[in-house]
Design a protein around this nucleic acid. Structure first.
Lengths: 144, 144
DNA sequence: TTTCTAACTTGAATTGATTACAAGTTTATT
DNA sequence: AATAAACTTGTAATCAATTCAAGTTAGAAA
């Protein structure tokens, strides 16, 4: 993790958010596995280490981490939410075939529109959808 | 409507999609009210004209219109889907306070990233969130 | 026009992600 | 060690969205 445990806890204390064992594990998992996991994927993985884990805790923890500004929700899939660590601006590409979400570099801030000068913009997301290189290759092969 | 009824039906026929009375009303409503409505808003409105309307029909119709490329889903809100007519590139700003979704001009195609050259990109969405001018003004007033 | 079939509509039942709630547990602080 | 607030847990509830089966509609073919 980029920030130390102490720094993190201190930063969170101002918001009355505790970095409990469960929450730390969840944060670690998202940080170490940049796969934009669903709640279910997080739950199943952490449950291996904490067998008493409840799914409600995963939801609660994620919401706490979101409030703390450490995690963000990706609503690119129409149904299940997926979660990502908050980092510099990047866009998300979701493959309609294999459901993978792939990061790509993008300077979202370059989009400062004059139209939005009176708006307070807090989040910026760029979502692309289509076929990833692997699935695209597969499709072209099958057409031959 | 920009396209005539005949053109539309013909265009849809190739996909075996009929532009039924219900579907036409739903399409008209989305086209005439650029409020990015929820299924419930559409249902309640069209029900005034077609009292026997079922919510399943609204879902079915929207999905058919999406397949036909006439309507698109906006997943900017974490829960309910919202629907929009397909037009030129524009971004969506969602106000976290009043929940309104506001269009803004943006040249999404300018984002052609070299990173994505092997991807087949079918949809591009830009979602911003924060406070709209009205809610922003209100907040600043209350802070004084 | 009549017939036929595929597409469509409808409402009830179901699914599945997410939240609400209440009871017990943990943790930081005094 | 005592206290209180935050946290975890499992169950129950919520609610958007889908499935399903039966009846209806509409357009193509005869």
């Amino acid at each position: 993790m980029a920030v130390s445990f102490e720094e993190l806890t201190k930063e969170l204390k101002s918001k009355n958010i505790r970095l409990s064992h469960q929450r730390l594990k969840i944060l670690e998992f998202i940080y170490n596995n940049k796969i934009h996991p669903t709640v279910d994927e997080i739950y199943k993985e952490i449950q291996k280490e904490i067998p008493t884990l409840s799914k409600t805790t995963v939801y609660n923890s994620l919401n706490a981490l979101i409030d703390a500004g450490l995690v963000k929700v990706i609503t690119i899939g129409e149904h299940e939410s997926r979660y990502d660590i908050v980092t510099e601006n990047h866009g998300h590409f979701k493959c309609d075939s294999c459901d993978k979400i792939i990061d790509f570099e993008i300077d979202i801030d370059a989009f400062a529109s004059k139209e939005l000068k009176d708006f307070e913009i807090i989040y910026k997301d760029v979502y692309f959808k289509g076929l990833c290189p692997d699935c695209n290759k597969m499709k072209n092969k099958n057409l031959k």
